[in-house]
Nucleic acid binder design. Structure first.
Lengths: 183, 183, 183, 183
DNA sequence: TATGAATGAGGCTTCATTCAT
DNA sequence: AATGAATGAAGCCTCATTCAT
């Protein structure tokens, strides 16, 4: 009888455990050897689960979007008013700011290393943005991209110069800004 | 005596010509061999001018800040009112958006590859931000970082998903936003 | 009891279906994984039928000689005169030229990869040659090897430079040549 | 001042010394590591001289054709009559039979491993054949390919079953055969 | 009997940097 | 001052075979 292992489940588990390494070193600096060591299997086995490093990363990203979007939806109830939803969403972002930072950084690293796969990153980015827009039910269609840009900006700013970005200030500004728009 | 000047001039010239390659491929994907070929000298000579790849890149970045800040100051006259200065500055950003994009991307690539040199990137980032803040003479001290974050965000958003970022919309928003703040 | 028969029958079937893959890619480029996928079983099962890749290939070759020799004997009736037998044999070769080409190529590939098993290839080669010699009943004992060399040569020449080998010309030459020898 | 080394000469020397290894193990079984060890330099250096393993092999083959054709022309004087030229050429082949064997084998190995480069092998093959045809000044245009096929065949036959190929017999046959054609 | 996950050595190739010339 | 050959560790990936289930 075949060894009974849920291949997909195992893969999902490997992806989840991979994230840490990518977060610490960035896509390009994570070697398949290091990854397999971290995951406790041989390089050969790693290649049983994933076709290669780019494929692994793509699946990692896809798994993350799904999870993140689900989390965001759980944290931003639809029965709140606009201000409340914005508030909840900002809470979500603020609580995960460093996670998002790592996600953006590794994506940009992948962007540089795999120019042929940029459309994929665009799709992922749109998925995040769509979730944000949908959830907020923003009055103006243009605000989604703006807000999304701003979050990306916070994240990059925090990367380049962590000490100069005061998260509460940024978030407070966004909240105030949203208020103004709702009037 | 003129030797030194020539040497520096030559170095500045090499840096300027290096930018294209870094912009096209990112810091990590530019090899010293490719760089020397592009610049028309041997790798040995390249090492006469620069101590190594990281040193070269640092100098490239420093040269860029100087130039960019000077350009910005030239384009944003101090005798304009707040709204005018903001307008001029946004014009500056809008005209150079892809250049800034490349600059940010290569810096983030360097960030991943040289964790030991992150403080340097923080300094460079602060220099840019300070120029922006100084030039705008923003009423609130907190607005500088916010604005700077937003510009970084536009740039990254444009990278990940070029088709979804409408530059005029973004800029118009910023302008309108600045207006509101001045009242 | 029927178990064993079935097993052998199954193995013969697997060998027959393996040939295509070896023909397309050559011995060295066929992986056991690819083979098992092509055959519709797991690698583990493949190893139930054959001890390993070299063993599998040996059996493949043996199965082929048997079949080919039988085919040749069927196509070259013993009641023809020398010229007729030669004619029939050339027809056989001409009709199967690309099959023979593949067979020779994969054998040479195996030759390079398994130096320890070269005697086996020699045996197989002799078996083919003996069939040719026996069937033709050549007047001179030396002609067999010559003819056999020539067929091998056609096949390799066709491999290296397909466009330059005109099969009918080659065959016509052989026929004419045989004629001369019979006089 | 640059290290004064004749890059092309060095490359030619490396190719000449590479041949032995390819002859012993075949194209596929020669690793770049083994090659660099044999040649007394690092893998990195090997890649300074050649773009990669296939490129190296191509150049090896090209160098060989040139040399071999030159040798053949030196050994087959044009002032001989047809029979004499044939005789001289057969002497050339007979003396180098194992060298030619190795050359053919490594080429066929390359053929299997680099399907995309088969046209190159066709060119090389034609070059050899053209030299043979030109030198012999064969009465019939069709004899060139036939003779060439036969030589290839001898070589492969000798590979598969060395003990069964008596070189003098093969050569004598060819000579006798050529005689017949000249009448 | 059948499965397929697991192994791990080893393949080709890259690259920042050095140093003899 | 300038050259570019040389280094060698390390990257990604492959594959015949085994063995727990």
């Amino acid at each position: 009888m075949p060894r009974v292992i849920d291949h997909d489940k195992q893969r999902a588990d490997l992806l989840a455990r991979s994230f840490t390494l990518f977060a610490e070193r960035g896509y390009g600096e994570v070697t398949m050897r290091a990854l397999s060591r971290e995951l406790g299997l041989s390089t050969g086995s790693l290649y049983h689960y994933f076709e290669g490093k780019p494929a692994l990363f793509r699946q990692l990203l896809l798994a993350r979007v799904e999870q993140d979007v689900a989390d965001a939806e759980a944290e931003v109830p639809t029965d709140l008013d606009a201000a409340g939803r914005m508030s909840a969403l900002l809470g979500y972002v603020q609580a995960r700011i460093d996670y998002l930072r790592q996600l953006v950084l590794m994506s940009l690293d992948y962007y540089q290393l795999h120019p042929e796969d940029r459309p994929f990153l665009a799709q992922v980015s749109r998925r995040y943005r769509a979730a944000l827009v949908d959830r907020l039910g923003l009055p103006s269609a243009e605000l989604g991209p703006l807000l999304y840009s701003f979050v990306l900006g916070m994240v990059v700013h925090r990367t380049l110069d962590p000490e100069s970005v005061d998260l509460p200030t940024h978030v407070a500004f966004l909240q105030q800004f949203a208020h103004a728009l709702n009037d």
